[in-house]
Design a protein around this nucleic acid. Structure first.
Lengths: 127, 127
DNA sequence: CTAGACCTTCACGCCGACGGCAGGGTCAAG
DNA sequence: CTTGACCCTGCCGTCGGCGTGAAGGTCTAG
């Protein structure tokens, strides 16, 4: 499929898809005309990219770990190398921290909203 | 206290503290010399600001909801107005969505890391 | 009184993930 | 053969939360 259809099927703009390619996240074929030609798998790949981007991973990091992503119909390329594992662990830890912060923040908002309720004083965590 | 001590006690740089003031999040007194003079409560306020910033709220939004924050030693200014409640609800929803995305992302990373394990194919959620 | 730490106000720089536009080629239908 | 939808490659713009000087005033210990 061409870029427009992939855009429709993923909800991602063509501009973003070209950006992903520029960053090494996608490598579509090219027609003689220069048009990009994507495969069906790219739909899942793009979804994976978006999920990781939403978690705050940079495109550079995603480019590193993308080859190992267990997407539907994708062959697993065997065991992951150790330095890659370190990156993964670091990012995982970052995400876990961010989950905690988000929950703290949501609790803070809840305290503001449900102020008529028990109205406990919230202890904000020291950094 | 002056800006340097507040910076030390919060782990936030003086530059950031001035920025918060510029955005209407803090309003310290001024000495005749022009030096900012902060109160003890500002320590908690800054922690609250950081928590909300970490959750992706913009400083403009934080400025709106800050007066209602139930911080230690702070008087609650009565029930919150309805349009403010709408903002709060919207942000809360955004945070909840982001929590889901983060968990999805962490699961994705786990799948890559523990690839030797059961190795199930991960279904990325369609947007 | 002087040194050094601290503070002030500009004002430009940065980063990442794109948006948007210009100027031009491609392709299928009528 | 033309029209309209689609695609290409640059390349500059944006946005938020600061970082990083520059040029100068203030405070306090010795």
């Amino acid at each position: 499929m061409r870029i427009g259809e992939l855009a429709r099927r993923t909800g991602v703009t063509p501009r973003a898809l070209r950006y992903y390619e520029e960053q090494g996240l996608l490598a579509p074929e090219r027609r003689p005309s220069g048009y990009r030609e994507y495969g069906d798998r790219d739909v899942d790949t793009v979804h994976g990219i978006r999920t990781l981007l939403a978690a705050g991973l940079t495109s550079a990091v995603i480019a590193e770990i993308l080859p190992g992503l267990p997407l539907p119909g994708r062959r697993r390329p065997g065991p992951t190398c150790p330095e890659l594992l370190a990156v993964l662990a670091r990012e995982r830890a970052r995400i876990t921290r961010q989950l905690d912060e988000l929950e703290a923040s949501r609790a803070l908002l809840d305290a503001v909203m449900g102020a008529d309720a028990p109205s406990e004083v919230i202890r904000t965590p020291g950094r």
